[in-house]
């Protein structure tokens, strides 16, 4: 087994154990807690929070990848080329918007809770996917494209059978960056009332309970690391084939 796969397995096992049996963390949490404070977050079961967190990130990830990839494909087609400057500029500008700003702006439009966070996640997750789709498609060597044209593949066949498979590892990198950033943004989403692991950290910050903070932080960090390792593994497989 490769080192990456082993690391993923360990991280996943640790994460699953801590989600299913939060009590495992008590010895660690006791070290940081003030006497008399609660150690484990008990307003909601951790597993529910994890499920919501994952659902939020997953749903937004699907929307962001579909829209991001579509846009990326469109601006790299000859007909869409004129919108390249526009799209890149908008994307560059988008990246200067911090996640918290996107969240903050979404709240007046959609109120508190799941929706603003979902919108922020979609918007923010879009950028890396779009950028990397463009980079990946542009990175397909010209001779390869020429060869595909020379063999008489139609436009759509070239895209699906040659360009996208070759660009896949780069696009996947975008998807990974997007997912990892979104796990973090979803955590911040708890400040506007989204249900998720951020709730644990924020509850801890509000009540001065370091044990809660640590518990939430560990779980979120582990979740992000698992996602990162899993998608990295996928990238490696893809690039080996490509």
């Amino acid at each position: 087994m490769s080192r990456g796969a082993l690391a993923l397995l360990v991280a996943l096992a640790l994460f699953a154990a801590l989600v299913l049996w939060p009590g495992l963390m008590t010895p660690l949490l006791r070290l940081v807690a003030e006497p008399g404070q609660a150690l484990l977050y008990d307003r909601q079961p951790i597993r529910v929070l994890v499920a919501w967190h994952l659902a939020l990130v997953g749903a937004a990830g699907v929307v962001a990848s579909v829209v991001g990839m579509t846009l990326g494909v469109l601006v790299t087609r000859p007909r869409g080329a004129e919108f390249m400057t526009l799209a890149r500029m908008a994307s560059n500008l988008g990246q200067t918007f911090p996640p918290i700003a996107v969240l903050a702006v979404a709240v007046p439009l959609l109120g508190f809770g799941f929706e603003p966070t979902f919108l922020a996640l979609c918007a923010y997750g879009l950028l890396p996917v779009f950028e990397n789709t463009v980079a990946g498609l542009r990175g397909v060597p010209a001779p390869v494209r020429e060869a595909a044209r020379g063999m008489g593949l139609a436009c759509s066949a070239r895209l699906w059978r040659v360009e996208l498979p070759l660009a896949a590892p780069v696009i996947l990198t975008g998807l990974r960056l997007s997912t990892v950033v979104n796990i973090g943004t979803a955590t911040i989403g708890s400040t506007v009332g989204a249900v998720g692991l951020g709730e644990v950290i924020i509850a801890g910050l509000q009540s001065g309970n370091t044990a809660f903070v640590l518990q939430g932080a560990l779980l979120v960090a582990l979740m992000a690391i698992c996602a990162d390792l899993a998608l990295r593994g996928l990238e490696r497989r893809m690039s080996r084939a490509g």
Binding site: V32, V180, I183, G184, T185, T187, I188, G198, I201, I202, G204, L205, T210, V213, L214, G216, A217, L218, V220, A221, A224, I225, D228
Partner: peptide, 20 residues
């Protein structure tokens, strides 16, 4: 890479412990 992966709130939270 691992550090970069850790979400910001989590990072702030984790650092509170040793610095505290």
């Amino acid at each position: 890479n691992l550090l970069q992966t850790t979400p910001s709130i989590a990072m702030f939270g984790l650092l509170m412990v040793p610095l505290g």
